[in-house]
Write a protein that binds this DNA or RNA. Structure first.
Lengths: 148, 148
DNA sequence: TATCAACAGTTAACATATCAACTAAATTCT
DNA sequence: AGAATTTAGTTGATATGTTAACTGTTGATA
């Protein structure tokens, strides 16, 4: 008896890292989805808006990378955000292919509002998991990004 | 000086747990996507197939829950898998509303093959992160599911 | 038992994702 | 300089995701 007779030839759900990450993200997002929804913003839209609050201006390609949205998705999502006056674009002088995106005051206000409401959820999450473990988790996730 | 003057009113990318989870999952999936693709299987299809290898028969609703696929998505994805002969369904006697899904031999063979190829990637990932930290990560992710 | 609520699964309508192919501009190479 | 390659972004075709509404059970309630 090796104790492994009944193990499948492949990794079951319990040891599937992608599945564990997906499940955890889904669980966490359950907290934030109502907030986004109340402001009529999708997850993807919010990712873009928040990325743009981290800098004055960003190239679309950089937003694409930092939000993990594919260029086509980004291209289409941007249109709606522009039409709603949440972001704006301007051509880049040095490179006629590219343009720079920036968040509008209205957009920044929306992100601030959503961020404010989200903070309550974050604090509750942190109180349930513990600040130390949350820190550990963030570190491990960063490590996955950097080493894999 | 509190050292926090320049912090945004909302959580930046660095402290966004959903984003960190998404990013980590994307990084890990980069390893597995080529394998799935080589077998002409999507991530979602594989989630279903693997869920079905964990039991003889499962109700669609249970597959939906364990794969995190919405009932409509599952409903449509199942059709393709059935047509490819990878799974089969039969009506449940006790409940005429439901049916039971099971994986076929062909499906099981496919999952085994993919699982085998994936294992090499898993081992490499584990060697880069370390078994202890991988364990920690899994534990933390489980904790998020259970406590949030 | 008749009614009503809850549940399993599907369908339809619409939004988003993905992949390949494309335009146009910038880089690199010779 | 001129040709080939790379890069930024878009578009089209198709697949998948999402929400709401729907059919047909089953279960609870009165």
């Amino acid at each position: 008896m090796t104790g492994k007779e009944n193990e499948p030839a492949f990794r079951g759900y319990g040891r599937s890292l992608p599945m564990a990450l997906l499940r955890a993200r889904d669980t966490v997002m359950n907290r934030f989805r109502p907030i986004l929804r109340a402001h009529d913003i999708t997850e993807q839209q919010f990712r873009i808006l928040r990325a743009l609050t981290s800098a004055n201006e960003l190239r679309a390609v950089d937003v694409s990378k930092s939000t993990l949205l594919s260029p086509p998705s980004l291209s289409r999502t941007i249109k709606g955000l522009e039409q709603r006056g949440l972001i704006s674009r301007r051509m880049e002088q040095d490179d006629q292919r590219a343009f720079l995106l920036s968040i509008s005051k209205k957009g920044a206000a929306l992100v601030a509002k959503i961020g404010q409401q989200s903070e309550a959820e974050y604090l509750d999450i942190e109180s349930r998991i513990g600040a130390k473990k949350m820190d550990q988790l963030h570190k491990l996730l960063t490590e996955v990004d950097e080493k894999i």
